[in-house]
Measured scan of single mutants.
Amino acid sequence: MDTYKLILNGKTLKGETTTEAVDAATAEKVFKHAANEHGVHGHWTYDPETKTFTVTE
């Protein structure tokens, strides 16, 4: 398992979190669910070198 990071750049919610996942696709599902639960919808990017997802509203 690897550690993946999410950076939230929402209009009303900003922050960072991490998750352990077997691959980037699994981490993305976890992060998108969490972002949706917090009402953050926007443009997603992924940097494979740093294993970091970013969502920007």
Rank of each mutant, 00 (worst) to 15 (best):
M1R: 10
M1C: 12
M1A: 07
M1D: 06
M1H: 09
D2F: 13
D2M: 10
D2C: 14
D2Q: 14
D2P: 07
T3V: 13
T3G: 04
T3Y: 07
T3C: 13
T3D: 05
T3I: 14
T3K: 09
Y4S: 03
K5I: 12
K5W: 10
K5F: 13
L6V: 04
L6T: 02
L6C: 12
L6H: 01
L6A: 03
L6R: 00
L6W: 04
I7A: 03
I7Y: 05
I7D: 03
I7G: 01
I7W: 04
L8F: 12
L8I: 15
L8W: 14
L8V: 12
N9H: 09
N9P: 04
N9A: 08
N9M: 12
N9F: 11
G10D: 03
G10A: 06
G10S: 08
G10P: 03
K11Q: 11
K11L: 15
K11M: 12
K11Y: 10
T12D: 11
T12W: 14
T12S: 11
L13D: 05
L13R: 08
L13Q: 09
K14R: 12
K14I: 11
K14D: 05
K14C: 15
K14P: 04
G15D: 08
G15T: 15
G15W: 15
G15L: 15
E16H: 10
E16V: 14
T17S: 11
T17W: 15
T17L: 15
T18Q: 09
T19G: 03
T19I: 15
T19L: 13
T19Q: 05
T19M: 12
T19R: 04
T19S: 04
T19N: 03
E20L: 14
E20N: 10
A21C: 08
A21K: 01
V22P: 15
V22M: 12
V22H: 10
V22G: 09
V22A: 13
V22L: 12
D23P: 00
D23E: 03
D23L: 03
D23V: 02
D23M: 03
A24G: 04
A24D: 04
A24L: 09
A24V: 11
A24P: 09
A24R: 10
A25W: 09
A25G: 08
A25S: 09
A25K: 10
A25M: 10
T26S: 13
T26Q: 11
T26E: 14
T26R: 05
T26H: 12
A27H: 00
A27P: 00
A27R: 00
A27I: 01
E28L: 15
E28D: 04
E28I: 07
E28C: 15
K29S: 10
K29E: 11
K29W: 08
K29N: 08
V30A: 09
V30D: 05
V30K: 08
V30E: 08
V30Q: 09
F31Y: 01
F31D: 01
F31P: 01
F31W: 01
F31E: 00
F31I: 01
F31G: 01
K32H: 08
K32G: 04
K32P: 01
K32V: 08
K32W: 09
K32N: 05
K32R: 15
K32L: 10
H33Y: 09
H33M: 14
H33L: 14
A34T: 14
A34N: 07
A34Q: 13
A34I: 15
A35L: 14
A35E: 02
N36M: 14
N36P: 02
N36E: 14
N36S: 12
N36H: 13
H38C: 15
H38W: 15
H38V: 15
G39F: 09
G39M: 07
G39L: 05
V40A: 04
V40M: 07
V40G: 02
H41K: 13
G42H: 02
G42L: 04
G42E: 01
G42I: 02
G42C: 02
G42V: 02
H43P: 06
H43K: 13
W44N: 00
W44Q: 00
W44G: 00
T45R: 07
T45K: 07
T45F: 08
T45A: 10
Y46R: 00
Y46G: 00
Y46N: 00
Y46I: 01
Y46E: 00
Y46C: 00
Y46L: 02
P48S: 10
P48C: 05
P48H: 08
P48M: 07
T50I: 06
T50Q: 06
T50E: 06
K51A: 03
T52E: 04
F53T: 01
T54G: 02
T54Y: 09
T54H: 06
T54A: 05
V55G: 00
V55R: 00
V55Y: 02
V55Q: 01
T56P: 01
T56A: 05
T56N: 08
T56Y: 08
E57W: 06
E57K: 03
E57C: 08
E57Q: 08
E57D: 08
